[in-house]
Structures are given as C-alpha cells and as structure tokens.
C-alpha cells in the first residue's frame, strides 16, 4: 500500500474542504477501500477519516420517513427498531451481506460506494476499463458467470455488489450529498451509473462530494417486505441474484409494488417493468410470473451468466409468493 497523509475530520465542513485536496479520499469503515488500497487498485495520497463525523444518528423525519446518517454502521442500521419493523427488507438485506465483523465496520455511505467484485477488476494484470479506461474488458470473453444481465456495455459487464442498496432502491431512498458547493439530494435509483462507454464513472457523486445521509420515505407498504439472496454458498458470499420486494394487497389486488434486483447490473436494478405488471393485478402466482417475465425480457446474457435470467425470474416469483403467503419478514 502506498504511504499517504492521514487526517481525521470531526465536522462536515472540514471534511468537504479537505476532500478538495488532489488525490484525497474519504475513509469510512475501510472494508472496501482498505482492501482496494492494499491491492493497489486505489492509491490515494491523502486519506480523510470521516468516521468521527457527527453523522451516526438515525432520526425520524416529520413526514414519517427516516434519516440515516452516512456514518451509521451497517449492523446498527440493521438492528434499529424502526428499520426492523417499518423496513424489514432493509434489515434483511444488510444482514445478508458480508459477515458480522464487516457489518460492524462498514458505514452506510461506504456501502453505497463499494466497488464491483468482478475478478478482473481486482487483478492488476487483467484488462479492465473500469480500472483503466480504454484498456479493454477481460470479463466479456472470460469468466463472466457473475456478470451483469442488464445494462451492460461492450466496455464493461460488472455488477454492483451491495445488498443494502437493492433494498434502498426498492424503497426509493434519497441520498444526501454535501460539498463546499452546497447540498444535493439524489434518488438512489439512478445514483449508480450504467457503464456505457465510461465504466470508470460509477456513481453520480462528484469527486468533492460527501454522502451525509440516506433518507427513507414514509412507505407503509415497506412494512410488508422481504429480501431474498441467492448465492453460491449459504452465507458470506456475494449475490448471484437477489430480490428486494415490498407489496400491498387489498382485496386480493396488488395496490403497491416495489421490486429491485441485485447481482444483475452495475446498479441495484429497480424492476419497473415488473412493478407495472403487478400494480392492479391480482396477487396470484400467475401475476408474479408475468411480472418476472416482463422484467427479464430486456436481459442480455453473456457466455456464462445466462442462468441468471431464469434464476432471477424464479427468485422474483418465489419472493413475491413468500411475501404473499407468509407475509412480511418483520
């Protein structure tokens, strides 16, 4: 790891001023950045520790939503009473990720910004447009079993690895960003970018911006929600496909549907097509299947990841069915 200057920011103004130094990086829990620095994929000159910032609160908003400070640790968020009761899909998604140790370290802001697990991104000897623009993509003609089926490009097929973000996408979370230029609020859906011809641009965050909070809207349907993660071993593995779902059913008819997929794209994939099919449809197996089919029509397989299309369909159907039959995960 390259040696670097280290400073601790105790307030947001100091942090956002410090980040304007060329080559500076914010450091949260370190679970992703320190790993990437050790592998020389990230080589910052200055590291600004932001874990002391006063952004570690979870507060109820006047409109019924929740404001989650960006420095709240993943485990704290999953353990919070309001998350467990009002947004169980989020608690489940967080608990499905990483390990107990890592969840105790990782911050909410850092989780949003974590980088892909594409093995070619992690190997400096491989070609990767995300790491080095224009170098090529070794995944397309190589091991791409866990690559994207939605929104990939000829330049990059990497997926976003977060579980938490899949739930946040389903919940229409808002990301609050702060810089010396002021405050911005962006929907999480769309915050992560599809690769296009510039896969190195992964999110809408500007280099000088700090994630200060995530806001969850008041969403009664979220109380009836679930997260389902399908992976290669029972625990401590990234998703092949995951599903975050929240529905509201009245008189047998779906009146609200929130669905997002993980492991399938460079962003947590909000399943708008499926939601359209579900809304107003009877809460039946047939509707679930049609919704899944509708979402996956746009999927494009590579040489090894075609199974994800069928897997995603089945995972969507299974999750919606479970939600319908067994109810909420709360």
């Amino acid at each position: 790891m390259k040696d670097f200057a280290y400073l601790t920011a105790h307030d947001v103004p100091t942090a956002v001023r410090a980040i304007t130094t060329p080559g500076a990086k914010f450091l949260g829990g370190g679970t992703n950045l320190v790993d990437l620095m050790r592998q020389n994929i990230e080589r910052p000159d200055t590291v600004i520790d932001i874990t002391q910032l006063p952004l570690d609160q979870i507060e109820e908003l006047p409109d019924g939503g929740l404001r989650i400070g960006a420095m709240v640790r993943n485990s704290r968020l999953a353990a919070h009473r309001l998350i467990r009761t009002r947004y169980p899909v989020l608690a489940q998604a967080i608990l499905a990720g990483a390990s107990g140790q890592l969840r105790n370290m990782a911050t909410v802001g850092g989780n949003v910004l974590q980088r892909t697990r594409c093995p070619y991104f992690a190997d400096l000897a491989a070609r990767c447009n995300k790491r080095e623009q224009g170098s090529g993509c070794d995944a397309i003609g190589g091991f791409n079993r866990n690559a994207a089926i939605f929104g990939a490009s000829e330049h990059c097929v990497a997926t976003h690895p977060s579980d938490m973000c899949v739930a946040l996408a389903a919940l229409d979370a808002i990301i609050e960003l702060e810089s010396v230029r002021g405050t911005r609020r962006l929907p999480l859906v769309g915050f992560h970018m599809l690769p296009g011809d510039s896969p190195q641009h992964e999110t809408a965050i500007a280099p000088d911006e700090l994630i200060t909070a995530i806001e969850l809207p008041d969403l009664p349907a979220a109380a009836r929600s679930r997260y389902r993660k399908v992976r290669d071993r029972s625990s401590y593995a990234f998703a092949l496909v995951s599903v975050a779902a929240a529905t509201e059913v009245r008189n047998g008819v779906i009146t609200e549907a929130r669905l997002a997929l993980g492991g399938v794209a460079a962003r947590p994939w909000r399943a708008h097509e499926a939601e359209r099919v579900l809304l107003g449809a009877p809460a039946t197996e047939d509707s679930f299947l049609r919704a899944a089919e509708a979402e996956l029509t746009a999927a494009v397989p590579l040489s090894q990841n075609g199974f994800k299309i069928e897997l995603a369909k089945r995972a969507i159907t299974a999750t919606l069915r479970q939600l319908h039959v067994e109810g909420s995960a709360a």
């Binding site: 450091l27 320190v34 874990t51 107990g100 140790q101």
Partner: peptide, 13 residues
C-alpha cells in the same frame, strides 16, 4: 466489545 476484522482496519483509525 464489538467484533471487527482487524486486517481492514487502519491502526490510526
């Protein structure tokens, strides 16, 4: 009292 992975923790933090 909380468990963490010390390999991903910078000592200074």
């Amino acid at each position: 009292g909380e468990r963490i992975s010390s390999c991903l923790a910078l000592a200074v933090q």
